[in-house]
Nucleic acid binder design. Structure first.
Lengths: 197, 197
DNA sequence: ACTTTAAAGACGACCGGTCATCTAATTCTG
DNA sequence: CAGAATTAGATGACCGGTCGTCTTTAAAGT
């Protein structure tokens, strides 16, 4: 990787962190370049606009998360429903250590969907990808008989993922793990397990 | 109501609408006063700061919604679980007519929780109130035997409300009613009904 | 020397918030 | 009750500062 790509990456990583906690409109270009210790004038050599940066940051945010989550979600050594449970539960750490930011995609969805059609479409796509990953696991569980719900895996996945986003959002306001615990408590019920404490 | 209160109300109503679609940082004082056709200088005679306005708008947003929702949620002519179902389903209209804004409280939660402690606490309180209202209905359903879940009403309410917020958020990005349908499809499962199509 | 890229700094617009000024209502005086 | 004095509230010009963006200059690469 060349020098240029490295700097763009640095800008993306650090800027993403800033924008994840202060939002799109709450983050200035100066905030981004300051955090990355990159001269202000350089910003527009890497991104053609602030919106362009946000679009790239959105992709980056999911890349980082997908590294780990895809690996877990597709790990055939663990029963599919167990994978799902871990996928959600492993978020706990972020909560305990005074999480800030929450889900960057969720944040951008709320703040920018009505202001930028480009960002809305990108968010929609990333949300769909995430939902699809969950649906795949559910479909696998259905095939091996551990998923008994009469509802389609698509509906189940859509519900679960949205419920999860709501849970993460709530944790931002409450700063406690109750929302997460409630989510995990209901997970078996939703996928149709009698009781898998 | 005196003239002054009326203007403050106007500022609150119109400003709330603007801030609900463009967010806190995406809305300027000028945007608010222009929408209400109130002179810029007047703003600070009604609110001591932008943050103060947002706090008041947050209360206003729930007042408006609570007018109708409380009445529905506490209507003893309808079975409690049916009330809950309607409470969520009645949101449909907003979706069909190209909803903008979503849930103002949810928006502010995502955008401002990490920036303003005052707003975070207000959001947390309002979210709790909403959850409590749902818990009350669930408790009523448990008493009359229609709620069979072994999980506590508090956990159920927390999960349901967060799932709902996530659903509303997803609709902002997707601009379709699929998320809502998925939510409504799972509602009976969550509260422990076998199938109450 | 010539092309390409990074960086500096300027740009006008706009930000949240303040201020002196003006208006209109209230209180005081007779 | 009339008219003068006082004051609370309304107002838009204006503050220093920051915004996102762009032009211009400096540096680097070949």
């Amino acid at each position: 990787m060349n020098k240029r790509e490295q700097k763009k990456d640095l800008l993306l990583d650090t800027g993403l962190a800033v924008m994840a906690t202060h939002g799109y409109n709450g983050t200035s270009i100066k905030d981004i370049v300051d955090a990355a210790e990159v001269p202000k004038g350089s910003f527009y050599t890497y991104f053609k606009s602030k919106e362009d940066f946000a679009l790239a940051a959105l992709e980056r945010a999911t890349e980082e998360r997908e590294q780990e989550s895809r690996a877990l979600l597709q790990n055939r050594d663990i029963p599919p429903l167990e994978r799902l449970s871990r996928y959600f539960r492993d978020y706990t750490g972020a909560c305990d250590s005074g999480v800030t930011g929450g889900c960057f995609i969720g944040n951008m969805c709320q703040e920018m969907s009505d202001s930028s059609e480009q960002i809305r479409l990108k968010v929609r796509q990333l949300l769909r990808n995430n939902t699809q990953a969950i649906e795949d696991v559910l479909e696998e569980a259905r095939l091996n008989g551990s998923l008994t719900s009469p509802l389609s895996s698509a509906v189940l996945a859509e519900f679960l993922f949205n419920a999860w986003e709501g849970t993460v959002m709530r944790m931002k306001a409450s700063k406690c793990r109750e929302p997460l615990d409630a989510f995990l408590a209901l997970l078996p019920t939703v996928v149709g397990q009698a009781d898998a404490a």
